[in-house]
Amino acid sequence: MPKIDAESPTDDQAQQDLKSAKSLMKAGQIATALQELDDLLAKSPDHPDGLYMAAVCLRYLGRSDEAAHKLVRLKEVAPDFARAFQEEGHLLRAVQRPEEALKAYERACRLNPALIASWKAQADLFEQLGRLGPARQARGQAEKLMALPKELLDASLLLHEGKPLKAEALCRAFLQAHPHHIDAMRLLAAIGVRMGVLEDADFLLESALVFAPDQIDIRLDYIEVLRKRQKYEAARDQARLLYEKDPNNPVFLSHYAIESLQLGDYDLALDLFDRVLAILPMIPPPSPLAVMP
C-alpha cells in the first residue's frame, strides 16, 4: 500500500500541467497532451502521474515500446502505483498475452481494489480462457464498484493511492448528506484505520451494524478493529456470532479461533484450527481477487 506521506504537497505548476494534459486527452488531442507531459517530465523526470499519463498517451498513439519504457521507470520510482500495473495489463492484452495481462491486472487490484477497468479486463480475460468462476467474481466486483456513488468511488481510489486526507474529506461530505449510508460508513471506517483513528472506526462500524446486522463484511471489519484496539472479548463475541451463523465456514472458524487464542483459550482455538484444516482441502484454492474496503 502507498504510504500516507505520499500525500505531501505537490508543485502547483505540475498539477496545472497534469490537469491541462488530462483535458486534452479527454478531448482526443493525445499528441498535444503528450507534448505537455514531455515538457513536465523534462522538469520532473520521475513525476509518477506524469509518467503514467505519458504511458497512456503513448499506448493510444500506438507507441507501445515507449509506453512500456515509461511504465518500467514508473514502477521503479513508485512500486505501489496501481495504475502502472493496470496500464501494463492493457499493453499485454493488446499483444495477446492474456496470462501475463491477468497477472498485471490482479496486481493492480491488490494495490487498489477500486480500479473498475482492471476488474472488467480480468472478467473478459477469464471468460476468454474458459475460467468462468473467477470471471463471475471479477465481473461482480466491477458491478459492485460501478453501483457506488461517484463520491465514494473517488474516495476509495484516493485512499488506495495514499491520499487518506482527501479521501476522508470526500467521504465525510457524502456521509453528512447521507448519514445512514452503509458503504460510506464502512469506507470512512477503513480510512480511519489507515490513519490510526481506531476509536472513530470502531464507532462507525458498530453503528453500521445497527442498520445492517446481517452484512458480514461489516462484522469482519469490526472484528479487526476491535482486535487492533485490544478489545479481545468484544472481538471474540463478534466472531462467535459469525461462527454460530455458519459453523462450517472456514473464514468464520478462523476468526473465532484467532480471537479465542488472544484470550488464552488454547484448547478451543486449537480445536477450531483443526476444523479449518479439515475443511480447507475440500474447497478450491482462493482466488487472488481483492475486495474493496
Results as ranks from 00 to 15, higher is better:
21 A>W: 12
21 A>V: 03
21 A>Q: 06
22 K>H: 14
22 K>G: 02
24 L>C: 04
24 L>D: 13
24 L>V: 01
25 M>H: 10
26 K>T: 11
26 K>L: 10
27 A>F: 02
27 A>W: 06
29 Q>I: 08
29 Q>V: 06
30 I>Y: 06
30 I>H: 09
30 I>W: 12
32 T>M: 11
32 T>R: 13
33 A>V: 06
33 A>W: 11
33 A>N: 03
33 A>F: 13
34 L>F: 10
35 Q>T: 11
35 Q>M: 04
35 Q>K: 13
36 E>N: 14
36 E>L: 15
37 L>C: 02
37 L>H: 01
38 D>K: 03
38 D>S: 07
38 D>W: 05
39 D>W: 12
39 D>S: 12
40 L>W: 11
40 L>K: 02
41 L>S: 02
42 A>R: 12
42 A>N: 09
42 A>F: 09
42 A>W: 09
42 A>G: 07
43 K>P: 01
43 K>G: 06
43 K>H: 05
44 S>W: 11
44 S>V: 12
45 P>K: 07
45 P>G: 07
45 P>V: 07
47 H>A: 04
47 H>N: 10
47 H>T: 01
48 P>S: 02
49 D>R: 10
49 D>Q: 09
50 G>M: 04
50 G>Y: 10
51 L>K: 04
52 Y>E: 14
52 Y>K: 11
52 Y>Q: 08
52 Y>V: 01
52 Y>F: 14
53 M>H: 15
55 A>C: 09
56 V>L: 13
56 V>F: 13
57 C>H: 08
58 L>K: 13
58 L>F: 10
60 Y>V: 13
60 Y>I: 15
61 L>W: 06
61 L>F: 02
62 G>W: 14
62 G>K: 05
62 G>P: 01
63 R>F: 07
64 S>R: 14
65 D>R: 12
66 E>R: 15
67 A>F: 09
67 A>C: 14
67 A>K: 10
67 A>R: 04
68 A>D: 08
68 A>P: 01
69 H>K: 15
69 H>N: 15
69 H>G: 12
70 K>W: 08
70 K>G: 02
71 L>R: 05
71 L>Y: 06
72 V>C: 01
72 V>S: 15
72 V>H: 12
73 R>P: 03
73 R>S: 02
74 L>S: 01
74 L>M: 05
75 K>C: 09
77 V>H: 01
79 P>S: 09
79 P>Q: 11
80 D>K: 09
80 D>P: 03
81 F>P: 03
81 F>G: 08
82 A>R: 01
83 R>S: 13
84 A>D: 04
85 F>Y: 15
85 F>E: 01
85 F>D: 00
86 Q>G: 06
86 Q>K: 09
87 E>I: 05
88 E>H: 05
88 E>F: 07
89 G>M: 00
90 H>V: 10
90 H>S: 09
91 L>P: 00
91 L>N: 00
92 L>P: 00
93 R>G: 03
93 R>I: 00
94 A>F: 05
